[in-house]
Design a binder for these strands. Structure first.
Length: 165
DNA sequence: CGCCAAAGATAAC
DNA sequence: GTTATCTTTGGCG
């Protein structure tokens, strides 16, 4: 186990809520009184009414964010990951809405390498709350969800457009 | 278990 | 176009 046995069984569909967004359907997963995960589901996925008070709160804030990107999330998020990843996520969460930072800038602040930052961001369990989409390549958009092109990147682009105004 | 080898959402020469 | 940099992951001894 050690470092290989972690949260591999996250593909269970026990979302506590599913909220429709313009670019995807957001699957909210909570554990006890903590938000532990947000998944991007294909458009067309049936929405699900909040199954708990916390899920309802999460949906409220997500909807508020979709309406006004300047909103700052105030949710009990439980970040599970390596110490390094938590540091990266913390740094990313400090990026103001409407702005972007390059992987190099984040890496420099954390005293590490750009590529390592990209990897840590890809492991981010709670996109939107931890705005990994605000981290872009020095020369362009960069990737998303461990890929450099495809649907995930389209989502990233949409989010940046959304915050840009 | 611990070590070696390869890859990745990059950046700089 | 190639090399540098750092973490994570998968395979093997």
């Amino acid at each position: 186990m050690s470092r290989s046995a972690r949260w591999r069984q996250a593909d269970r569909f026990d979302h506590q809520a599913r909220l429709a967004a313009p670019f995807a359907v957001l699957g909210v997963t909570t554990e006890e009184d903590w938000l532990v995960r947000i998944d991007y589901l294909p458009l067309g996925t049936p929405v699900l009414a909040p199954q708990s008070a916390l899920a309802r709160e999460v949906c409220e804030q997500l909807r508020a964010y979709l309406r006004d990107p300047r909103l700052r999330f105030d949710l009990p998020v439980r970040l599970s990951g390596t110490p390094f990843q938590q540091r990266v996520w913390e740094a990313v969460a400090a990026i103001p809405s409407g702005q972007t930072r390059s992987y190099a800038a984040v890496a420099k602040a954390l005293h590490t390498a750009p590529r390592a930052v990209g990897r840590a961001c890809g492991a981010n369990p709670v996109p939107l709350v931890v705005p990994c989409h605000r981290v872009v390549a020095a020369d362009g958009l960069g990737g998303f969800l461990h890929t450099r092109s495809g649907a995930p990147v389209a989502i990233k682009r949409w989010l940046l457009e959304h915050e840009r105004r």
